[in-house]
């Protein structure tokens, strides 16, 4: 499917550098914060999902920048490759890195992303100027999103716990799809000539919040103390970001009209 066709550089909004800093620093601070504060009180594990939201918003912005050029195929593909690279890199990082796990995961994902970006441009001939840079960003965002959500679910990013509590029961698959949805859906939903960065990223926050709520529900298995703050804060962020998205949609739309309900049989006669 040729979504968008040949396009150009994405314009407007917050500069990419700021969003990258927001994603990397926010993601890592969230993950480490959740890891260390959970030792004091498991209720703090929700901070990991906040880090994941930062990473998801970063990923969504990177998808927005690269997909503005037109991939020749659907936007979802890039979200799926992000999480494919991310899941391999993040489990590798957590397994070998110990306390440096999230950073090793980020670096491993960036390297895999760089290679895939180079292959896409040089071998497959996609000729998108920012492909390499974007693939690095998307892989890194995917890895941080997975580590962040896993930390909220397990209360730690130590590999043995993550393996037993997140990977073995299959919750990693939920993270895979929820995180991938957060990265691919915002631009997929908002693309077009009238696409605006703030509206796209509002969807990113909203999808990240849904992932956070899901991570909270899963962490209920381990401790209710950890689950309740994650679910409550997730619902709060979801409401704020969805309201913001609706407001921005009304701003960007030419006109918003209610169609009303379907007419009843009497009214049709």
């Amino acid at each position: 499917m040729s979504a968008g066709g040949p396009g150009g550089e994405a314009h407007g909004g917050v500069a990419p550098g700021k969003i990258i800093a927001f994603g990397v620093l926010g993601g890592l601070i969230g993950i480490y914060g959740a890891h260390f504060l959970s030792i004091i009180n498991p209720a703090f594990s929700f901070i990991g999902a906040l880090g994941a939201i930062c990473a998801i918003v970063w990923g969504a912005d990177a998808v927005r920048r690269v997909c503005s050029y037109g991939l020749g195929t659907g936007v979802p593909s890039i979200g799926m490759i992000a999480l494919g690279m991310g899941v391999i890199a993040s489990l590798f990082g957590l397994a070998v890195g110990g306390i440096a796990g999230p950073i090793v995961a980020l670096i491993a994902a960036s390297i895999i992303g760089l290679v895939i970006g180079l292959l896409a441009n040089k071998v497959l001939g996609m000729n998108i100027p920012i492909m390499e840079k974007s693939m690095v960003e998307i892989g890194g965002a995917g890895a941080l999103a997975i580590v962040g959500l896993s930390t909220t679910m397990a209360g730690t990013f130590m590999f043995d716990e993550v393996l037993a509590l997140v990977v073995a029961p299959g919750y990693i698959a939920v993270i895979f799809i929820a995180g991938g949805m957060g990265i691919l859906h915002p631009f997929n939903a908002c693309l077009g000539p009238d696409e605006e960065q703030d509206r796209t990223l509002a969807v990113g926050f909203e999808k990240g919040a849904i992932a956070m709520i899901i991570a909270g529900i899963v962490s209920m298995v381990i401790s209710t103390t950890a689950a309740i703050p994650a679910i409550m804060i997730g619902v709060f962020i979801w409401y704020i970001s969805f309201a913001k998205f609706y407001e921005l949609t009304k701003r960007d739309a030419y006109k918003v009209l209610g169609t009303g309900l379907l007419p009843t049989e009497e009214e049709l006669q």
Binding site: T73, S77, I78, M80, I81, L83, G84, M85, G86, V87, I88, L91, I116, L119, A120, L124, V167, I172, A173, F176
Partner: peptide, 15 residues
Amino acid sequence: IFAVGIFFVNAVIPS
């Protein structure tokens, strides 16, 4: 999950 990750990477490249 590794198999799924590798599967997705190899499904997107030909796409």
